[in-house]
Each structure stands twice: as C-alpha cells, then as structure tokens.
Amino acid sequence: MDVVYFIELAVNGALVGLMYALVALGIVLVFKSSGVANLAQGALAMVGAYVVWWLGSATGAPLWAVIPLGVIAMFFFGRGLERVALRRMVGQPVIMIIMLTLGLEILLRGLAPALWGTLLKRMDIGISQQPLFLGDILVNRAYLVGGAVALVLIALSLLFFNSRQGVVLRAVSDDQIAAWAVGIRVERAISLSWGFAGIAATAAGVLWGSVQGIDWTLSLLLIKALAVAILGGLDSIAGVLVAGIAVGVLESVIPGYVDPLVGGGTRDVVASAVILLTILVRPFGLFGREQIERI
C-alpha cells in the first residue's frame, strides 16, 4: 500500500469535505435557529454562484471583486425566501415545511438555468491552476482555498452562536412560543438565519463553481451536504466540521482504492451510505443534541 497515495487522497478529500461542510453549514444554521430542515441549500449554493457570475459579467469587474456584492445579495435572497415562503408556514406541521423547502430547491434548480442559460459557465476567481506540492503530496489549490474559507466561516459561526444574538437564535429553536413570551422577535431571528444560510451557500457555490463550472448540477451538492449535516448532528456546528472532513476523506479514499476494482462510480455511493448508516445507527448524529429527559 502506497502511503503517499493514501495521504494525498486523504488530504484532498479532507479539503473537499470542508467545502461540503460549507454547504452543510447553511442547513445547520437554519435548523439550529428554527428547527426547520432546509432542503433548499443546494439550490441556494447554485443561485449564489450564478449571481456572482452574473454580477461579474454584467459589470465586467473581476470576479473576486464582485463576490462581496454577491454575498450581500444572497443574504437578502435568503431572508426573502423566508419572508415570502416560510413565514406563512408558522404553526404548520414539520413535514409541510420540509416539503416546502424541497419545492423551493426544485423550483430554483429550474429557474436559475432558465434565467441565465443552461450552458456550463466558467468561473475563474483567480486561483492558480499550478500544482502545489507539499512534500510529496499533490494538493489542489482550489481545494486548499475552499477549505480555508470553509474553516473561517465555520469558526465565525461558532463565535456567533455564543454571542447574545446567537443565544437568542438557539432559544428560538428550543421553544418558539417561550421565545415570543420573553420578547424575542422570532420571525426576525429565523429570517436572519436564512440570510446566513444564503451567505454560506454563496461561498460554497462560488468555490465549487470555480472547480467544476456553473450549471444546475451545482445544486446536487445538497446530497453531500445532507450527509455531512446528518452525520454531524443537524444542529452542531462543530459536528459539521468533523463530519465534513470525515465524509470528504471517505469519499476520496474509498473510490481511490475501490474504483479500479469495480470500474468506478463508488464516490456517489459513499454520501448516501453515510446518510443511511447514520440514521440507522445514531439518528442524532455525532454531535447532535440529545432529547433531554429528566427522570
């Protein structure tokens, strides 16, 4: 067994995993503050990438310069989704809300290519294509940048949830009626979390877009993100980090060894297997909060 090959797979896998974690972060942020499973996150990432690309091509400015604009736009897009669609659903059964987010995902998947065209768009955000060698290990620069951005955003989210506003959001996810009763503007809090989901989605969409180009398939990141979010425990940000790396490494190492034997295609199986196994073995994930039962 070639150790360098293994490490190379693992390192690149971990970096990719961090980028998955970035998409999953949006799911966790929303779940942590409103208890809603956000299945529109894949499409949000895709829309984020489209918006940044569109801003770039419309203004002619370099892409890295319009990314902040795109992030701001997507912050408000996320809040808008909440305002238009989800706020009407307060008090409805959870399954209805999940179906609604899934519907949004499908709608956006269709709508974005319809608006901006179905051709694959190249997105060059200025990351050099030169190979980068760390010792003997070949590392993809785009992944390295992506992993770093993901780490920063995850760290910021961790900090945020320990701040006063973050405590308020956690309170909302615990008990919305009690939150109302102590003066928390619940709607505003939930809307804020969707705004953050929009930001995380844009970052992820742009990074992935720079790797694989932009078309509707970007929204398939949803599956990977779900695997990460479920494995990490739907409401744990630290869980997103660990699970992201775990899923990324598994997804890179397993195909690295198994693909030559079976003829390829195991990569996509890994994420699904992770979802299934987690739900069967440990439904609340690695770091998810347990149901508190006092005896």
Binding site: R164, V167, V168, R170, A171, D174, D175, I177, A178, A179, A181, V182, G183, I184, R185, R289, I292
Partner: peptide
Amino acid sequence: RRVFEHLTPDENLVAATSM
C-alpha cells in the same frame, strides 16, 4: 415552565434580553 432546555440558566436569562 417552558425553559429553553438546551441552554444553560445563564443563557436562558440572556435570551430574554433582546430588548
């Protein structure tokens, strides 16, 4: 009672200070 179960008492108090 309806306390925020996953928050500590300290955080429960802080959560009620959004005004």
